[in-house]
C-alpha cells in the first residue's frame, strides 16, 4: 500500500477532504446521516408515490426538522447523563407528566403560562434531583433507579389524571405552530437547546467536569470534583429537557394525556439516538451535535417511509436494523482505529 502512495504535496482533493473531515472532529454519525439522505433520494425516486422528490420540497424538509424537535430536545438531556455514564429511563414519564400538568395548570388561560412553566420546570428539577440522588448517594444502578422513578411518576400521574385534562391556551401553541420567517419556532428552540448543550459541554467547567466524571468517577473524585453533585446536575438538566419536550408536545397537542410520553417511546428512542450519535453507554465521550444527527436520522427515515408508503411493521424492522447497523458500524470502525 505504501509503495505507490503519492508524495505528500500531490494528495488528491479527496484525500485532503478526508483529512479535513478527520481533523474537523465532525462526529462520524453525519456520514451515516448523509448516506441515509442519499438512500432516501434513491428510494423516493424508485418507490415514491409523489411525482416530485419530497427532499426538495421545502415544507417537507422543514417538517423533518419539526419531527426532530420533541425527541431532539430530550435526547440532548439524555446525552448529558450518558456522558456522565448514567442513563435516564424516566424521561418518557416525565414528558407525560409535563404535558398533562401544563394543560391542567394553564387551563386555557394565557395568564397562567409563565408560572405554570416555572412550576413544571421545578417539578423537572425535583425529579432530576431524585434520580441523581438515588444514583449517586444511594448507589442504585441508574437503569433501575430511573425505571423505578418512571414507574412512580406513571402511577401518580395515572392516579390523578386518566385523561386529557384542560388545555393550553392558543398563545402557548405558538411554540409548536408559530414560525419566524420560514423557520418554525420549535426548530429554532431545538437548535438553541443543542447549541446551549454544546456550549455547556465544551466551553463550561461543568461540561469538562461531567466528561471527567463519566470518564472515570474515581479520577474525577480524587481530582477534587464533587462527582455526586455533577452527576445529579446532569440528571437535573436531563429532566429539564424532558420538561421542555413535554411542553413542546403539549403545545402541539393542545392538551396532554398521561400516555403521550410513553407512546412516543421517548425513553428508548432518546437513548438510541444518543448512542447512534456517538455517545457511549460507558460515558466520558460524545456530544450533542452527534445526538442531533442521530435524531435527524430517525425523522428522515420516518418521512421517507411515509413517502414511499412502507408498511408500519416493515418500518419497525428496518428501524431496528438501522439502530444495530449504525452502532455496529461505529464500534467496528473505532476498533479498527484502535488497532
Amino acid at each position: 500500500m505504501a509503495a505507490i502512495s503519492p508524495p505528500a504535496s500531490q494528495t488528491s482533493a479527496f484525500d485532503r477532504a478526508r483529512h479535513w473531515l478527520r481533523d474537523s472532529r465532525i462526529p462520524p454519525v453525519y456520514g451515516i446521516l448523509v448516506i441515509i439522505f442519499l438512500v432516501s433520494i434513491v428510494l423516493d425516486l424508485v418507490f415514491g408515490i409523489d411525482d416530485q422528490l419530497y427532499i426538495f420540497n421545502r415544507t417537507i424538509m422543514t417538517n423533518v426538522l419539526v419531527r426532530s424537535v420533541a425527541l431532539g430536545i430530550v435526547a440532548v438531556g439524555q446525552t448529558f447523563v450518558m456522558i456522565g455514564a448514567s442513563i435516564d429511563l424516566s424521561v418518557a414519564y416525565l414528558i407525560s407528566l409535563t404535558a398533562v400538568g401544563a394543560s391542567f395548570l394553564m387551563n386555557g388561560n394565557p395568564d397562567n403560562i409563565w408560572w405554570s412553566v416555572l412550576v413544571l420546570i421545578g417539578i423537572g428539577v425535583v425529579v432530576g434531583f431524585v434520580n441523581g440522588t438515588l444514583i449517586t448517594r444511594l448507589k442504585v444502578n441508574s437503569l433501575i433507579a430511573t425505571l423505578g422513578v418512571g414507574l412512580i411518576i406513571k402511577g401518580l400521574l395515572n392516579a390523578a389524571f386518566d385523561n386529557f385534562a384542560g388545555s393550553v391556551p392558543a398563545s402557548f401553541q405558538t411554540f409548536a405552530y408559530g414560525s419566524i420567517g420560514p423557520m418554525p419556532i420549535s426548530v429554532l428552540v431545538l437548535f438553541l437547546v443543542v447549541a446551549v448543550g454544546w456550549f455547556i459541554l465544551r466551553r463550561m467547567r461543568f461540561g469538562a467536569h461531567l466528561y471527567a466524571t463519566g470518564g472515570s468517577e474515581e479520577v474525577a473524585r480524587l481530582s477534587g470534583l464533587r462527582t455526586e453533585r455533577i452527576l445529579t446536575m446532569a440528571h437535573i438538566i436531563c429532566s429539564t429537557t424532558a420538561v421542555l419536550t413535554g411542553l413542546f408536545v403539549v403545545s402541539r397537542l393542545r392538551s396532554g394525556a398521561p400516555w403521550v410520553g410513553t407512546d412516543g417511546l421517548y425513553d428508548l428512542e432518546s437513548i438510541a439516538a444518543t448512542v447512534i450519535g456517538g455517545t457511549t453507554l460507558s460515558g466520558g465521550r460524545g456530544g450533542v451535535w452527534g445526538t442531533l444527527a442521530g435524531v435527524l436520522i430517525f425523522s428522515l427515515l420516518d418521512t421517507t417511509f411515509n413517502q414511499i408508503g412502507i408498511n408500519a411493521y416493515m418500518k419497525q424492522i428496518l428501524r431496528g436494523a438501522i439502530i444495530i447497523l449504525a452502532v455496529g458500524f461505529y464500534t467496528v470502525r473505532s476498533m479498527r482505529e484502535a488497532a
Binding site: A272, V275, L281, Y313, Q316, G320, I323
Partner: peptide
C-alpha cells in the same frame, strides 16, 4: 462480534422481532 452494547443491540432486535411477528 460487532461489539454493539447489548442494550442497543437488543433494542434493535426488540423492534425487528416484533416487526416480523406483526408483519
Amino acid at each position: 462480534y460487532l461489539k454493539v452494547p447489548s442494550l442497543i443491540a437488543t433494542l434493535g432486535t426488540l423492534l425487528i422481532v416484533r416487526g416480523i411477528g406483526l408483519f
